[in-house]
């Protein structure tokens, strides 16, 4: 009798172990239609700039959904979904399959406002310094520090590198930080670099996350500050050179300069990318990413379509043919002019 009772208990417990599938929700099938619908829903719920960019995502569905059925090839499905995503005109949007990666090339929205060869031949020459991700030299008879920063992604900026730059250019009359065609990288490098241009806590922007499909479905705004520290500071004005290729972390850097009286922007609009991308997976296994945060500048505006320069200067072909980067020259003139005031 005891064994019977115990056996019944055991059988009951074992039977419960089989009910996990009942408790879990059903699987989402990996068919083409299911995959398409899932991506469309995810963007509709989580993409941060549908309203800002005035994208009617519902109508997009009716344009692209008829192009998908469960019989079309993977390649065709990819093309339809990638084209749909590119309606968002966002460099942070990608569809990733084992055979392709879709992208929206933001740099094509404006001219490449830099020629790196020209800078190398006529500004950096052969004796430039390379300190971490910074390539730098002094121009205009040593009065202006020129620092080219090609990527925020190369490595984390260190205090040692910044100390070196501050020491080396302490006696210059102005500094140019050139982030043209800098496609971004670590956002944490932005306050690190900016901390050398202020002695006080400075609010540089606010950020919030998309939390639901509704127009106002965002989390509470979080203020981002550059905190004051005892590290060595640069005491003169700074010009930051930007263009459409200045994207993501570069745009964060550019928009943050709005909080500084001693920093101004020269060049073309940036490419934007002021939303941080979220990664995720689709029912067929492909992955995607798109922006789910938005950034509000200190002036209360959203510059996702590009941070506006204080001085709009485009590379002049005539100057270029004479070996002159007129964007650098403009910035240098402005710095020296401010310095003599």
């Amino acid at each position: 009798m005891k064994i019977k009772i115990f056996s019944i208990v055991l059988i009951f417990i074992i039977a419960l172990s089989a009910c996990e599938k009942l408790a879990f929700d059903k699987k989402i099938d990996g068919s083409n239609i299911s995959t398409f619908n899932y991506l469309w829903e995810q963007v509709g719920q989580k993409y941060a700039f549908l309203e800002y960019k005035e994208v009617d995502w519902d109508s997009i569905y009716f344009v692209y959904r008829p192009m998908v059925d469960n019989e079309i090839s993977e390649d065709s499905l990819f093309k339809v979904m990638a084209t749909m995503l590119n309606e968002l005109k966002d460099g942070h949007v990608n569809l990733i399959s084992p055979f392709n990666l879709s992208r929206y090339d933001i740099t094509m929205l404006g001219p490449v406002n830099i020629d790196t060869r020209l800078i190398k031949e006529n500004y950096l020459f052969d004796d430039y310094y390379s300190t971490g991700g910074f390539v730098h030299t002094a121009i205009r008879n040593g009065d202006i520090a020129y620092i080219r920063y090609e990527s925020f992604a190369d490595s984390q900026i260190t205090d040692y590198q910044l100390d070196y730059l501050m020491d080396k250019y302490e006696n210059t009359k102005g500094m140019i930080i050139d982030i043209r065609q800098n496609g971004g990288g670590y956002v944490t490098n932005v306050p690190m670099l900016l901390s050398r241009f202020t002695n006080k806590d400075t609010k540089i922007y606010e950020t919030q996350i998309k939390t639901s499909a509704s127009e106002n479905g965002f989390s509470v705004l979080e203020s981002v500050y550059v905190n004051s520290n005892d590290e060595k500071k640069y005491k003169h004005n700074v010009a930051v050179l930007i263009d459409r290729g200045s994207y993501s972390a570069s745009s964060f850097f550019a928009v943050s300069t709005y909080a500084y009286d001693n920093i101004f922007l020269v060049g073309d609009y940036t490419g934007g990318g002021l939303g941080l991308p979220n990664g995720g997976q689709l029912p067929n296994g492909w992955t995607y990413r798109f922006s789910i945060t938005r950034t509000i500048a200190v002036d209360g505006k959203n510059y996702e379509n590009g941070v506006k320069p204080d001085y709009y200067v485009i590379l002049n072909p005539n100057a270029y043919n004479n070996g002159i980067d007129n964007v650098i020259e403009f910035a240098a003139d402005k710095l020296l002019e401010n310095n003599t005031k």
């Binding site: 950020t207 996350i209 998309k210 639901s212 981002v224 002021l274 941080l276 991308p277 979220n278 945060t293």
Partner: peptide, 8 residues
């Protein structure tokens, strides 16, 4: 919601 570090 998905949280990509919020740019902070």
């Amino acid at each position: 919601f998905t949280n990509p570090e919020s740019a902070t």
